[in-house]
Write a protein that binds this DNA or RNA. Sequence first.
RNA 1: GGAUGCUUAGCUCAGUUGGGAGAGCAUCACCCUUACAAGGUGGGGGUCGGCGGUUCGAGCCCGUCAGCAUCCACCA
Length: 858
Amino acid sequence: MLEKRYNPKEVEKGKYELWKNKGYFKAGDISKKPFTIVIPPPNVTGKLHLGHAWDTTIQDIIIRYKKMQGFDTLYLPGMDHAGIATQAKVMEKLRKNGVDVTKISREDFLKTAWEWKEEYANNIHEQWKQMGLALDYSRERFTLDEGLNFAVRTVFVDLYNKGLIYRGERIINWDPVQKTALSNVEVIHQDDKGYMYYFSYPIVDSNEKLIVATTRPETMFGDVCVVVNPKDRRYSKYVGMKVINPANGDVLPIIADEYVDLSFGTGAMKCTPAHDPNDFLIGEKYHFPKPIIFNKDATMNEKCGVYQGMDRFECREALIENIKKDGNFVKMEEIVHPVGHSERSNAVVEPMLSKQWFVKMRPLADQALSNQKGKNKVNFIPPRFAKVFSQWMEKVDDWCISRQLWWGHRIPAYYHKDSGDCIVSIEPPKDMENYIQEEDVLDTWFSSALWPFSTLGWPNTSSEDFKRYFPTDVLVTGYDIIFFWVSRMIFQSLEMTKSIPFKKVVIHGLVRDEKGRKMSKTLGNGVDPIAVIDTYGADALRYFLTTNSTPGQDMRYIEEKVVSSANYLNKIWNSARYVLSVLPSDFNEEKMVCLSSMDHWIVNRLEETIRNVESNMEKYDFNAASTHLYNFVYDDFCSQYLEMSKVALSSDDERKKNATYHVLYHCLKNIILLIYPYTPFIAEELYLNLPKHLDSIMLESYPKYHPQLIDKEHDEEVEFLFDLIKDVRNYKILNKLAPNAKLELSLKTNKTLFEDFNVYLERFTFSKLGDLQNKQGEIKNYPLGQMTIYSNVDSGELRAKLEKDIALEENEIMRGEKMLGNENFLAKAPKDKVELEKEKLAKHRLVLEELKKKLASL
RNA sequence: GGAUGCUUAGCUCAGUUGGGAGAGCAUCACCCUUACAAGGUGGGGGUCGGCGGUUCGAGCCCGUCAGCAUCCACCA
């Protein structure tokens, strides 16, 4: 017997272990068609947040749904080593433990990092368990494990040999806190307040000056020239002359290049080739040297004279003061301009010339773009995200993949100790004693990019898993990592496996707080999914997360909605409790026979619901799918059929009762099965309480639409009955009568109503049917007939009510007449529509007549 | 400077080929009716951001304007 109230803690207890131990999460039934989702591997840096909960719940719903549809589903788990983020956290931990991290060896650091990984992996496993994810743990992977490392080396060497990976000196984004290079997507541009400084540069052999503007005066130590536009009449006379750099007295040539924008700043631009990407190009073009002026921590280096050792921003201030003293300061203006920050450390990123490893993107991007135009493209859901992807691919720069870190895949390049020659190979050279391996590791996303195939055994293309489960079917992820991850998986997969990595990408948004703000540590507005589960249960959280937004749209976390999700589950719980309590102890599920009109009606509604749920599940529109089920559960099943069933069950007719048992059971079972992918715990609990069941709901099939079960012959009469009941209830409330007040009714209809129609009507209106021809009453009209409610309400109120109804009817008639009086409408609208409007108009006219008669008789 | 999304009830949001706008929460009235008071029954509340267009008919399609949000972008 079920408890009176749904208790998620009790319901969820032990179920996950059971599923897992029984092997229900394991893929490998080769008699079925495979269906694969790989989890986006979470970072081993901390706890999972609501965004993960949302993401994985969508995946789990799809997996559980597909499994019930008879697929051999593989939901592959794994985690990401998250290079920079994890290294920072491990370093911090070491520092807290009193370790001098500047002296620690690579090996010692890595040992601590692996311990960290174990600890956090455990946390994540616990969270996956609480969320109820149907993950096949026998196939779990880690981006830094042996097999994935082999895949990474294989890809690296292959791309290198094809000329798609190269080592070169270019301007990269330098994070002076983490002391590593970053890729472009790891730099966040935000609008910061700053200043535009104007300095005068004295012209050599002249009394004139050139005024140059800059936002970063400290880079003046790296300047090699001043550039003006050749079309700029203000400055053309100076081209070829020289100026004095007010920062250090260097003599710099004035050159002309089209790049300079006449209208920006003063039209004269200082050029720092080692610390600005555009200046770098000019430096290359005119063969200037490219002096680097920063140390790795963004302090000033030996090229900066007295400023050596100063932090870049201190140097800026000091330098400005000195320029002021020298009389070369012109002015400064406050401006707001985009400044690059490191995604991880938030430090202001310094563009810096550096020797790094790069992936040559153009050929790979073009391949991905042309693939999107073909038949085997990756389908984005919603489709607009395909555009986001292709626009990025169209203008992507080369990808800087080397990182000056320890935690990651070490680049498989080896330098000869004497000659310096570089060998790139999967395995180290045989005479390794003569070589030194590249110190740098790869960008974390380099290994993540291989995830859909490296986890399935690639590069061993004859691996059973790779052959069977690749390409994967669906990838679910947030729009915020399309560039980081989705796009890179696509081009790497196309290049390495000659196939797309997944057929579909289901994109969702971000979870925000109730005010619509992004959840962040600094705001302290993050919500811990485990805390939510603790209070409301995993099912309520899962249901909330997947039924409160449209695909691709952001969502707000609103606790009341989690509460109402839990209330909905309680509703289902209680409806189950009712059904199970009325079923006879020897109930045995058989074919539904001898159905009453009422029984047919609910079965019809259920079939429609199944059809709608199915079609929306196929579109990954979980909000729409669940809304259909919700309406069925509340309005059709609980509010109507379940109440009505009490009539049949209280009769003496065994045939009627038996039909009702079967229909109740049929509906309940289908509700449980339909909602199961969303809320597996409660569904399993209720399922196991059914009189007849398999060992687990996970072994069941998902309900299918069976049009042959539909019989709508008496649906209209059933709806008629509901209308009558509703109107009597409404009448009582309007007339301040108690809900159970006894009234007398009469009913006129020219249709033979289904058996027990009057019994239902009397019972649910607490009223008595009779012939009230000689009494005064309120008349109500319906398509199938007319009801009169005997009334002793005073005539004033009745008159007001009638007048209101008349106004409403007149309004309807006006609308109809206007529409039908429009010749264009008659000519162009579909015939059905015109007929419908004609019928409606006739009906309203009839009703109006009745109402007027009634009013006159008062 | 490009691109995208959003603007619908007091709040948070749905609205699937264009044919009289819905949910949750809130609110009002009545009810502890034997599945559920974290409930039930019934009600109130919306010129669907503004303007213009297409159409017999527009929340939905087109144009335009405004506001909000996000992403991309090297303007010193």
